[in-house]
């Protein structure tokens, strides 16, 4: 479909362009939006290219955190020294996503807003309430191997596809958002919405808002963190299950725990139930399994994705086990 194109020279121009016209999309790396436009799923009247905006910096924050500009490319984020040392989980999550070529293009802001890979969302002939509000959900009762088991509703079971966002959820990242009305800060837990009966409304952002930065708070335990992704081939596939975890252990007891899941949730899934159970538990497989079960008790599955419960249990335990000091297995090449 034809659309008009504007390359915004500065933030203000971009903000005005989206404020003027609801049917406008912001174009970052284009790795998702362009695909969706080709498929006829996104049909914006206007595309505002924001890649010239000065939002490409990674900065050390005085409190030990890191501020990442929204236009930082995924490959640069993964390679950044501060990120690699303070938040290894984030580097690993980014490197487990897509391909080198895509990571060179994809931006941090765009990755957060990446849309589901549900087969029925992508197929214009199928019913999908995310694509066509109120049209139903053909994934329920259909091929739902890559669908979510947590946070689903009778209207939508589409999984959030991002790896990076799972790590950010675990790290309590804060998303800085601007519009002509001003700047606000959105905790990542409040950025994505559950589908409920409005699966087409995916975030709490207004249509005229631009993500300008992501701030990572100081998370000392994240120095001992890890991202584990299980998928249908060795690379270049979305997660069946992924786990972002950080663990602090003293005298064999868990003193700090952060856990988030990908591939299983309708949004990047912070496993708060599991974290609650982990604290004070012995850092053993049994303790980890109890935590996993506490989180997954709420799972709602289809015959196609029921295996994700067991796969998630095992992947959570295996990932946490690797984070126990002196208890870790030797390096895996996966």
């Amino acid at each position: 479909m034809p659309f008009s194109y504007l390359s915004a020279p500065d933030v203000e121009t971009a903000l005005r362009a989206v404020a003027d016209d609801e049917d406008t999309k912001l174009l970052g790396g284009g790795t998702n939006l362009v695909d969706l436009m080709r498929e006829g799923i996104e049909r914006p009247a206007k595309v505002v290219d924001i890649t010239r905006l000065p939002l490409g910096e990674i900065k050390n924050l005085p409190d030990g955190g890191v501020r990442v500009g929204a236009l930082v490319r995924n490959s640069r984020l993964a390679a950044d020294h501060l990120v690699r040392t303070r938040y290894p989980v984030l580097t690993q999550a980014v490197l487990h996503g897509a391909s080198a070529q895509l990571r060179n293009m994809a931006t941090v802001g765009g990755n957060l807003l990446q849309r589901t890979r549900c087969l029925y969302f992508y197929d214009g002939a199928a019913a999908c309430g995310k694509r066509e509000p109120g049209s139903g959900c053909d994934a329920i009762g259909g091929f739902s191997r890559n669908s979510a088991i947590l946070g689903t509703s009778e209207h939508c079971i589409a999984a959030h596809p991002s790896d990076m966002a799972v790590a950010l959820a675990m790290l309590d990242a804060v998303v800085e958002v601007r519009s002509v009305r001003g700047t606000r800060r959105v905790p990542i837990a409040e950025l994505h919405r559950l589908p409920g009966d409005t699966p087409h409304v995916e975030t709490t952002l207004a249509t005229d808002e631009l993500i300008t930065a992501v701030e990572l708070p100081a998370v000392p335990v994240a120095a001992n963190s890890r991202y584990r992704k299980v998928r249908d081939r060795a690379s270049y596939a979305f997660a069946l299950v992924s786990v972002a975890a950080a663990l602090g252990v003293e005298d064999g007891t868990v003193t700090a725990a952060r856990l988030a899941l990908g591939g299983v949730g309708t949004k990047p899934w912070r496993a708060t139930e599991a974290e609650r159970v982990l604290l004070g538990e012995p850092a053993t497989d049994e303790g980890f399994l109890r935590a996993a079960d506490a989180e997954l008790a709420a799972a709602a599955t289809t015959p196609h994705n029921h295996f994700k419960v067991e796969l998630a249990r095992r992947t959570i335990v295996a990932t946490l086990r690797r984070l126990v000091p002196d208890g870790r297995d030797e390096e895996s090449t996966i």
């Binding site: 087969l119 992508y122 199928a126 249908d232 081939r233 060795a234 690379s235 270049y236």
Partner: peptide
């Protein structure tokens, strides 16, 4: 339902 190389999984180099 998966008429694309992103969802029809042929081996990648790493496989």
């Amino acid at each position: 339902m998966n008429p694309s190389l992103s969802e029809y999984h042929i081996p990648v180099h790493a496989d």
